[in-house]
Amino acid sequence: MGDLWNVILLDPLLNGLIVISRAFFDNFGIAIIILTVIVRLLTLPLTLRQLKVSKVMAELQPRMKELQKKHGKEKEKLSSETMKLYKEYGVNPMGCILPMVIQFPIWIALYQSIMLALAATPEALFDLSSHLYPWSLVHSAVPLANQWLWLDLSKPDPVFVMPVLVAASMWVQQKMMTIPSPDPSQSQMNTMMQTMMPLMFGFLTLSFPSGLAIYWVASNIIGIVIQYFVTGWGTLKIPTKIPTPWVRTPQPAKAPAAATPTSTPAVVEKREQDGTTGDKRQDGRRSNRTRPTTTRGQPRPDRNRSRKQR
């Protein structure tokens, strides 16, 4: 099992990291960032799928709450109605867990490859030998140059900048990811997670090699960018001048949606019958399906104003 892990995941990432480092003038810090970007791009379809399912789930919250109110005492009925709702919107309840589970081994292998390549001790450098491909380019690059900016990448950051960056970037990402919950206990749990996770990783960074901290910061920033383009700023409060590409402003529904009658404003447009959760249109443009259907066709004041200006 260990050998399989090494052959399929760890060794390719490790040797790739060393090759990138060599290609960028033995700059290991840059190599970590580049490999993190590559891995995040390769796993982007999975990440997008996960985020989109999460988004739909969030949008279904009012409907779920209604169902709970209606069938709360009948577990079986509630379950079947829930499943019906999922089917109606083409959502697989495992849809946000599965991509995460698939990505985990890749993240762990990336993490391990960085730790191995750093070779912080003579023992670690010795261990590295069994993972290297018989390429002269790779062999001539080790041990890698661990100095980058003010950091010795094999040691914790002495001036504590990296722990702060790790914690801050993780907090932003967590804040954007969190789906507001009408349930107070759930909301409290979310708040705790938003605080604890960044603090925990910030604390870990105090004792981990700073090369790993670079990976965490890079990974978080990429995650923030992806999250922004899929769900917007989420629960993160951003000054209004910064545009959010996707997020609707909650508005009271003037009329129930035709397909799914409800009195709540957060109703989403019914997904295509093929069950996909993507946002594709025939014309290739993004549909603003997160806007309540009842607002469609109504004149937008800003649009009218701009036309007049022209």
Partner: peptide, 9 residues
């Protein structure tokens, strides 16, 4: 329930 589902994840 779904929020719980996501939190569980």
């Amino acid at each position: 329930m779904k929020t719980r589902h996501i939190s569980l994840a």
